[in-house]
Design a binder for these strands. Sequence first.
DNA 1: CCTTACCTTTACGTTAACGTAAACTATTTG
DNA 2: CAAATAGTTTACGTTAACGTAAAGGTAAGG
Lengths: 126, 126
Amino acid sequence: MAEYSISQLSKEFDVTTRTIRHYEELDLLMPARRGQTRVYSAADRIRLKLILRGKRLGLSLDDSRDIIDMYEPGKTNVDQLKKLIDAIQAQRTKLNQQLDDITNLLKDLNQAESDCIESLKTNGQK
Amino acid sequence: MAEYSISQLSKEFDVTTRTIRHYEELDLLMPARRGQTRVYSAADRIRLKLILRGKRLGLSLDDSRDIIDMYEPGKTNVDQLKKLIDAIQAQRTKLNQQLDDITNLLKDLNQAESDCIESLKTNGQK
DNA sequence: CCTTACCTTTACGTTAACGTAAACTATTTG
DNA sequence: CAAATAGTTTACGTTAACGTAAAGGTAAGG
C-alpha cells in the first residue's frame, strides 16, 4: 500500500522529475492523481525500475514499454500471446548476444589492465 | 595485409557508408587514402568491429573511442596508465551491473514465456 | 562515348530522450 | 503573512547518431 511522490522516486533512482514525467508522456507510467498531484504506487515504482534497467541495457523507451507490458498477463488473446512469445525469443537472442559481447569486453579489459600494470613495472622505475 | 573498401565494410557489418564516415568524423577511424579514396586496413576493420560491439552494449561513440584507445599501448606515460587502470575498473563495474541486469531480464522473460504458454493451454482450446 | 558503379565532400534534416525556462498553484514554516 | 518548498502545465532548446540529398570525380565495360 506504499505511495510515492514524484520527487521521492526521483531521488531514489537518481533521475530528474522531468524524466519521470517524460516516461508518462510516452505511456510508460500512469500514476494515480490526488487532485493534480501524481501519486505513485508500488507497482508504478517497479515499472520505473524496469524502465531504468532497460535503459542500462540500451533499450529504447518504446522497447521497454513493450517488454514491460509482456509481464502483465490478462486481457491478451491467443494471437497476441503468440506474438509475445516471438518477441520474447527475439529479446532473448539479443540479450545472449550482449552477454557474449560483455564477456569479450571483460576479457579485453583484463588484458589491457595487465598490459598497463606490466608497463608500469618496466617503465615506471626511472 | 588485407585491405577493404568502405562499401565492403559497410556490407560485412551491415551499416551504411555514411555511418562509417561518421565514425571517422568523430576520430574513431582514420583509414589511409589512395588519392581521395579511403583504404581500410585489418586494424581499421577491427576498430570498427569494436565500435559496433560498444554500440550493442549501449556505449556512446565517445566512450567507445576511449575504451578502444585503451587497447593500444605505446606512447602513454605513467600517469596516463594509472588513469587507464581506473577507467578500466569503472568500465568493469558497469559491465558487471549489465550482466546482472541481463540475467534478471532473462529470468523475467522465461517467466513471461511460461505464463504465455500456460495461458495458451488453458485459454486456447475454445 | 556514355552509362553504371563506386567513390568523394558539403550541408541541412530527423529522432530519441530528455534539459531548461516560464508561469502558475498549493502547502508549510519562521 | 511572507517566503520557501513541492507540485503542475506548456513549450521551446539541445545532443547524439546518423539520414538524406545535392553536386561532383573516376574507372570499367558495352
